[in-house]
Design a protein around this nucleic acid. Structure first.
Lengths: 154, 154
DNA sequence: GGCAAGTATCTCGTTGAGCGAGATATTAGG
DNA sequence: CCTAATATCTCGCTCAACGAGATACTTGCC
């Protein structure tokens, strides 16, 4: 509410932070409404992304991606399976491995969460010209890389 | 890697999601490294923001902001106080209220986390002209509002 | 002044996500 | 086959967060 048309750097930094916080809260709220936990939702997103990219998902990969240990990962997969969102299928090539298959129910759930958000974002972006979209892209990529750079930090 | 100069809406939506995920992970990693929980870090951010804006913080406001109930909020404030990051001070005007004061230690901690990130973001933004910064601002505001709109949802 | 209602915070008992350690099953190599 | 490596799961535990309700203080009404 302070900014008119000349936002400076710090304004944008704080706006970004507030935006990510709101997105997190929206996710947590949606998760609670559907009887799952924030971690469950993040796991679902990860699984749907992997499926979209044509990659196989296993408990090991999922746990590593979310920063959980093996016990926590098993509990997570148990919850998702109990909810009927995913299925465990033994890999026939390497029978130590378990592949995680997302159910259609999970896909529908993901869309019911992201759908409205995506629609609003797309409607907004439709009012942007190519240069403006490029600016947004450049900013987000930069921030993503800056956040990732901290991973090596310690 | 896929984008050159004409990112479309969906590209930006996915980029935004990946960016917020990276920021979350960076936050969780930093929190773990400093012996606190993701919630503690979020609380600290909220408190530092309020202080920056010259607003008074109370357990009630903090808990509402983070979506915690009163018991969880008390436990959170206990943790932060035990760590010496904040202090509880009774409001002399309305002695039912407790004001939360952030310690210098908390400010230093916040800067050690956000400092590098902010520096990189500011360096990036320095290469943006006014129109580009306005575009970023418009996009982030829109997404923030779209995420907040879900709050009324149920 | 004193009492009822309202507001802000804290306490108690419980649940459950996630951790560390280690068990189990399967594969690969000598 | 026997050992090492890999993938997943089990057990026992800790602690963040919840619901319910207690406590402390303020405000308004008589």
């Amino acid at each position: 509410m302070v900014q008119r048309q000349e936002p400076d750097g710090m304004d944008l930094v704080h706006l970004l932070r507030e935006t990510t916080l709101r997105l997190d809260l929206a996710g947590a709220r949606f998760a609670g409404r559907n009887g799952l936990h924030p971690t469950d939702l993040r796991a679902l997103i990860s699984l749907l992304d992997a499926a979209r990219a044509g990659e196989e998902s296993t408990p090991g990969r999922l746990g590593a991606h979310l920063g959980l240990n093996s016990a926590g990962t098993t509990a997570l997969v148990d919850r998702l399976e109990r909810l009927g969102l995913i299925r465990r299928v033994r890999d026939t090539r390497d029978r130590r491995r378990v592949l995680l298959e997302v159910d259609d129910r999970a896909i529908a759930l993901g869309q019911s969460f992201f759908g409205p958000l995506i629609d609003r974002a797309l409607a907004l972006l439709a009012t942007f010209d190519a240069g403006e979209r490029a600016a947004v892209h450049r900013f987000l990529s930069g921030v993503r890389d800056a956040a990732s750079a901290d991973d090596e930090g310690a």
